[in-house]
């Protein structure tokens, strides 16, 4: 199924289409955006859609929704290959790939239970990306421990 066709399934007037989500991760995307049935948004969700290249993907469409920087960061961590389409008046106004942020503020909860950010202190977490070969890690600015992408995904979708 072509991208064009996917988007047509339920064309939205205004809002966002999050495309090329890793297959099976659509629910996690909704979860990090804190969108559930009670949030009032009109949401359509496609899981395991075949792409023209023969791969699978998930797609999420949310009507009347804008994305803030923090939400884009969250999506990138759940599904680093996702693309964002901003739709206005049935037309795609803007299209871009999400990208993993170099520095992440106030998103990741440090998994080190003895990290000072897990105490009742007036600070927000700060993590910085590190590349070790092909491995991607985020290091806590405070306790200096690292978290893998899998550990981060687990912690933010909980």
């Amino acid at each position: 199924m072509s991208e064009e066709k996917t988007l047509k399934i339920s064309k939205i007037e205004d809002g966002i289409v999050i495309d090329h989500i890793n297959p099976g991760s659509a629910m996690e995307v909704l979860s990090v955006l804190k969108i559930n049935g009670k949030s009032g948004f009109t949401v359509s969700l496609l899981m395991n859609v075949r792409t023209s290249k023969g791969n699978s993907k998930d797609v999420v469409k949310i009507e009347k929704k804008n994305l803030r920087k923090k939400e884009l960061d969250l999506i990138s961590m759940v599904s680093p290959n996702a693309t964002i389409n901003i739709v206005e008046n049935f037309v795609i106004k803007e299209k871009f790939n999400v990208s993993l942020p170099e520095t992440v503020h106030d998103i990741i909860r440090c998994q080190n239970q003895n990290c000072v950010t897990n105490a009742k202190e007036p600070v927000k977490t700060v993590f910085t990306m590190e590349k070790k070969g092909d491995k991607l890690l985020y290091r806590c600015h405070y306790c200096e421990r690292t978290m893998t992408m899998d550990e981060i995904r687990n912690s933010i979708t909980k």
């Binding site: 080190n112 003895n114 990290c115 000072v116 202190e121 806590c140 405070y142 306790c143 421990r145």
Partner: peptide
């Protein structure tokens, strides 16, 4: 301090220099 990262945090809230005398197993 017994928690890791406590010294970094302290340095951010202090108006004078902070020396870490040991933070947790950090």
């Amino acid at each position: 301090h017994p928690m890791e990262g406590a010294a970094r945090l302290a340095s951010e809230f202090s108006s004078v220099p902070v020396i870490n005398g040991g933070d947790g197993s950090g």
